[in-house]
Design a protein around this nucleic acid. Structure first.
Lengths: 193, 193
DNA sequence: ATGCTAATATACCGGTAGGTATAATAGGAG
DNA sequence: CTCCTATTATACCTACCGGTATATTAGCAT
């Protein structure tokens, strides 16, 4: 692992545990066994570090979802595949996804919020696109695709947070296929009722 | 409004917009038109200010819910009354509830998280108690009361965040009874399916 | 008027924040 | 061997952080 990666890793650990604003550059480079100029050489600023961290991690999430999110006519199955891809990613990247959610929930004038906001919006557009692709077949969404997308992703986030809180920090987050199908089923019943 | 209140108000405004760690005491007292020693006279420390702010606001939320959350045999109706009380509170206190959620989602080693955690836990215990009171009549919960409570509250939070994001900062958040009934209905279908 | 207390301001503390000027080091290309 | 560039560290900057010692003000009871 080169020094750039060391800094990114230490930063994520600390941001996840204490939050972006509560962590100083000094603490990050200390944890990485380096010094401040090294961090500024690679990232230019604290915000630059955050952007790099979020950008690189978000790309991984997006690739995960893109591989799964192909509407093929069977909408519940598509949602299941998306949910499965999502949980696969967050299980192996619990820190980064938790951190992204935390940043997104902080005040809109917060620097961290401004950094994640475009990524989260982009992600939601992707999920919304799924519902729009299915709109012609489902028919009864009445322009509520965005609301459904938010509801669906909210259910996934909520489930992630619940399972995370019940899983010790050092253990892997586990959700089997049956549980994931259960979540999608619950969501679909909500839509059709 | 006395000076103590002025400080609490300014603090909430700033914490809500920028986050707890990103706001300094100096900014808070400047916004309130006062000076630092006044803040330290009333609250002793930044953490003391946060505790006072959260404590006083949480009490209002708890009173709101307590008035509504009395299980009377009709469980869906009980949930509806709780949801209605919840939305009534968050509509009139959008900043404080948003701020509480933000703090709760930040890292567990963050001071702000430590401050809200007991309040949120207490709140969840209250909601869980509702499901436990209904357990004898509903019967089929199989010890999943806590999970249902988290799911139900998560749905309320999610809805609040969605409606909030669609409501301009200066406008009141509005959810009519029909929409609230729809949310509860969606949740119940999930349980029974 | 006098003394007491609650409430507020001025001016300051040590520490650390984000950030940088400068120099040393190291590895490859010629 | 020598130069060049990429990388890293030492030492420092200013600004602001949370917090406080001290003085002042205002109101009130005597």
């Amino acid at each position: 692992m080169d020094n750039r990666e060391k800094i990114l890793t230490s930063a994520l650990d600390l941001f996840y545990a204490r939050g972006y604003d509560a962590v100083g550059i000094q603490q990050i480079v200390d944890a990485a066994g380096l010094t401040k100029p090294t961090m500024y050489y690679y990232f230019g600023s604290k915000r630059g570090l955050l952007d790099a961290l979020l950008g690189e991690q978000y790309e991984k999430l997006e690739r995960c979802i893109d591989q799964a999110a192909v509407y093929n006519g069977d909408f519940p199955e598509t949602l299941f595949l998306v949910a499965k891809a999502f949980f696969h990613f967050v299980s192996e990247n619990r820190k980064v996804y938790s951190f992204m959610l935390a940043l997104f929930y902080t005040g809109q004038e917060n620097e961290g919020h401004k950094a994640v906001e475009p990524l989260i919006s982009r992600y939601y557009r992707k999920i919304t696109g799924l519902f729009e692709a299915a709109a012609s077949k489902l028919g009864n969404m009445n322009g509520r695709q965005k609301q459904f997308a938010l509801g669906f992703q909210g259910l996934l986030d909520m489930t992630f947070l619940r399972v995370r809180s019940q899983t010790p920090e050092h253990e892997a987050i586990v959700l089997d296929e049956m549980q994931i199908r259960g979540i999608v089923k619950q969501f679909m019943y909500g839509i059709y009722s």
